[in-house]
């Protein structure tokens, strides 16, 4: 009986149609599963691209600008994370490396320290990023001589560019024109910020001190004791401070020009 039973069971085989159907069903199931996986992978890839793209866009979009009025002017685009994301017109710089993607304070510092700008007599920096950025840039600029910072809106900056003036000078032009409409762009362009400020002070009848404009380049000496000098004169005036202590000199003149000397130890 054992043998008969074995033979009986052995005579049963899976029909070829049954095997073929099952093979087809398994193939279809595998494809559906693979298709599902591919779909998931595709969606994940799209999301990743979208995330990276939008993140990159947010990072790479400048929201404010710092214009350094060299010739040609250097314009730094600053993103919302206070990083420099674009540098244009940096031909006068000897090294542009390290400016991009650094914080704008570092970038301004690096540009101002650039040997290519050492012989530039006067620099104007225009900022469109609000007072916080202006303060930071002023902090950077305070270590350098004859650097003037000012802040303005995009529109002012555009108008200044249209007039061919740095923003600081353009603002001065507007201020001067309020007193003397005959002042032209050319006149302003030929003067330094210092001269412009003196001019404005003269026109407005105010002294440099309370004119409301601050310029780097005033000399400060610190130390023990104090000493200061103050001089006025017709035609020319100069003031200087000497001493072991802090000296602060300034002068005003009716002649429109003045010189100053500072000595500090």
């Amino acid at each position: 009986m054992d043998h008969k039973l074995y033979e009986t069971f052995d005579s049963i085989h899976a029909e070829s149609a049954l095997v073929a159907h099952t093979r087809a069903a398994m193939g279809a199931a595998g494809r559906v599963r693979n298709r599902g996986r591919m779909r998931v992978a595709a969606v994940a890839a799209c999301l990743a691209v979208l995330l990276v793209g939008s993140g990159g866009w947010v990072y790479m979009t400048p929201v404010s600008a710092i214009n350094i009025e060299t010739n040609p002017p250097i314009e730094l685009g600053v993103n919302r994370f206070d990083r420099v994301v674009s540098v244009s017109g940096g031909d006068t710089l000897q090294s542009e490396d390290g400016i991009k993607f650094s914080s704008y304070e570092d970038a301004v510092d690096q540009i101002l320290s650039d040997p290519g700008l050492a012989d530039v007599p006067e620099l104007s920096i225009a900022v469109t990023g609000g007072s916080e950025m202006l303060n930071s840039v002023e902090n950077c600029a305070s270590a350098h001589r004859n650097v003037y910072c000012c802040s303005g809106s995009e529109e002012e900056l555009a108008a200044a560019e249209a007039a061919g003036l740095p923003l600081g000078k353009y603002q001065m032009l507007l201020a001067l024109q309020a007193f003397d409409p005959s002042i032209t762009v050319q006149q302003v362009a030929g003067m330094t910020m210092r001269q412009l400020r003196d001019e404005l002070a003269l026109l407005s009848g105010e002294t440099d001190e309370n004119a409301g404009y601050q310029g780097q380049g005033n000399g400060y000496g610190t130390g023990d004791g104090s000493g200061n000098g103050y001089g006025t004169g017709d035609g020319s005036g100069n003031g200087y401070g000497t001493g072991d202590g802090s000296g602060y000199g300034y002068g005003t003149s009716n002649g429109g020009h003045h010189s100053e000397k500072h000595h500090s130890e």
Partner: peptide
């Protein structure tokens, strides 16, 4: 294992439709 599965289906199920059903279920 097609024959093994088929034989077990044979001794349990009474019709071919069920057999096909179970056969595919097992391999899936």
């Amino acid at each position: 294992y097609a024959d093994t599965v088929r034989r077990i289906c044979m001794i349990h199920l009474k019709n071919y439709a069920d057999t096909e059903d179970i056969f595919q279920t097992v391999f899936l």
